[in-house]
Amino acid sequence: MSRVVIAPDSFKGTANAADAAAAVARGWRSVRADDEVITRPMADGGEGTLDAFEVAVPGARRMPATVRGPVSEPVATHWLLLPDGTGVVELAATSGITLLDPLAPLDAHSAGFGEAIADALDAGVERLLLALGGSASTDGGAGALAALGARFLDGDQGRVPLGNRGLGSLARVDLAGLRPLPPGGVLILGDVTNPLLGEQGAAAVFGPQKGADAATVVVLETNLARFARLVPDISPQTPGAGAAGGTGFGLLAWGAAMGGGAALVADALGLDDDLAGAAVVITGEGRFDGQSEAGKAPSEVARLAAARGVPVALVAGAITAEPRGFAASVALTGLAGGAEPAMADPLRWLEAAGARLAGEIGVVATS
């Protein structure tokens, strides 16, 4: 009997991390029923981070809140209060792309995220962990800052509309009214290291995922650059400033510190301890691409596994970059015969992936 650890991130829009881990585990057990299989759903600051902390931290409490969604519709959501007084707020659960249909690249905003943060501050949290990722907007975090007391003014000293479009008429940024940070500070759980501006910035890289065509990407970039010029103390080139449509930049302007989302989640889960004595670990995410090595969950799991000398396998909905450092890899699109069938029944194909890996690398687990 061998110990197998299964620690995937969510497969965005198709399966959460817990369901993905369970499906892979079922597949593995169908081939190797006697193995000890441990599931540890992961997150990297994006969608599913609240769920990961809730599972990992005994005594964590959901705190309900109703906020403005990405285009100001009411969204019933929650943030997490940990026993030590830490509040965990997830952008994907308040201002996320999965909350918006159709997409609105110029008008979606992050105000709801700021409202949930304000709710946590009102509850008296000692510190904040802010999970970025999965955003619907490209507003540089201006919406979140506005909800926390900042003012974004046009040439007539009127407030500009929420969203990136509003940044086009921005003339002055007044951060004097921002709420103070909690005593223990604010740590950003970021899932990317992209800067705010440029070829690797929020507009160029993530704008198309939010419905922006080439012309709209230019507008998004121009408006973000205008915003950045009016916040002179924070460099738009700071790694992670481009996270969540530039919300990383806005939070840095508030005084938050940048951290690694996947590493903090793994620590809360005690994943390193689980890997001690493991024969193999399986990780995964919806799309393994050029961004995956920049602090996302599979790269953190692989890093911890390498330090323990444990082989690591990858399961992803699609694999578009070379999966370096993995003993084996499986793409659901390959198993299912295309993206559409893979997304239509992801748990079926995750289970199939678990069974395939058990057959392919089971010999590793027994050696």
Rank of each mutant, 00 (worst) to 15 (best):
M1R: 12
V5S: 13
P8H: 01
G13H: 09
N16I: 07
A17L: 03
A18K: 15
A22N: 05
G27V: 11
W28H: 06
R29V: 00
A33R: 15
P41S: 09
A43M: 05
G46N: 03
E47W: 11
T49M: 05
L50N: 00
A56M: 02
R61I: 02
M63P: 00
V67T: 05
G69H: 00
S72R: 15
E73Q: 10
V75W: 11
W79E: 15
L80C: 02
L80I: 10
T86M: 05
V89N: 02
T94E: 07
D101F: 02
P102C: 04
P102E: 06
L106S: 05
S110K: 06
A111M: 00
F113R: 10
G114S: 04
E115K: 14
D119S: 14
L121G: 06
L121D: 03
R127F: 03
L130P: 03
L132C: 01
A136I: 04
S137Q: 14
A144F: 11
A147R: 13
L148G: 07
G149M: 07
R151H: 05
F152G: 13
L153N: 01
Q157M: 11
Q157A: 09
Q157T: 04
R159S: 12
G163A: 08
G163E: 08
G168Q: 06
L170P: 02
G177P: 04
L181E: 11
V186W: 02
I188A: 13
L189R: 06
E199W: 03
Q209Y: 00
G211W: 01
G211V: 05
D213R: 09
A215Q: 14
A215F: 06
A225I: 00
F227Y: 12
L230A: 14
P232H: 03
P232V: 00
I234C: 05
P236H: 08
Q237R: 12
G240D: 07
A241H: 03
G242P: 08
G246N: 05
A253I: 09
G255Y: 10
G260I: 11
A263T: 04
V265E: 00
A266G: 06
A268S: 01
G270A: 11
G270K: 09
D273Y: 00
V280M: 09
G284T: 10
F288M: 06
F288Y: 15
S292A: 13
K296Y: 01
A297S: 14
P298C: 08
S299H: 15
S299F: 13
A305K: 12
L314C: 00
A316I: 07
T320L: 03
A327L: 09
A327S: 04
V330I: 11
V330L: 09
G338V: 05
D345P: 13
W349F: 14
W349C: 06
L350Q: 06
A355M: 09
R356P: 01
L357G: 03
A358T: 12
G362M: 04
V363E: 03
V364Y: 08
